[in-house]
Amino acid sequence: MSEMSKIVRTISNSLFPFIMIYGLYVIMHGHLTPGGGFQGGAVVASGCALMLVAYSSGWVFKKVKESDLSVLESIGAIGFISLAFLGIGVTFFYNFLVGSNLLFGEIPPAGPNTGNLNTAGLLPLMNLSVGLKVIAGLFAIVAVMAFVASRGMRKK
């Protein structure tokens, strides 16, 4: 696929940071507001797919290689499983950070409250790893399919 017109590219350029910030907000605030790793990852991958269709797939593969995307996805998966294994002293998936005074270790007051980002123990870290995995995985699918489609059309 070739580049689209200058109008589409300009609008995509100015829209891309807002989509990225919204998706990263959904990932990072997954334990306070609706959303989480999968939802925010899907939003960020949608923004990357917007850049992919506005510019060409060759332009995208000059910036990010598909092996990098595979590595990022594997880092997310390994991070998720090792975070689950860290609590193996009690059970698998034990949330050992809650109540300690370490990172994300506070407990919010019961009932409706203004959210505090520094709560919920392992959940934000798991949200981050799942979000990384979903971003890399979904964008790798779209980018590889677009690249193969453009290459097949050039051969004809």
């Binding site: 997954g30 009932g111 709560t119 919920a120 392992l122 959940l123």
Partner: peptide, 17 residues
């Protein structure tokens, strides 16, 4: 859920914990 996992969002605490 709010007391045990410390997350305000009960859906996330079910899904991840």
């Amino acid at each position: 859920a709010q007391n045990e996992t410390g997350a305000n969002n009960a859906v996330t605490s079910v899904v991840f914990d």
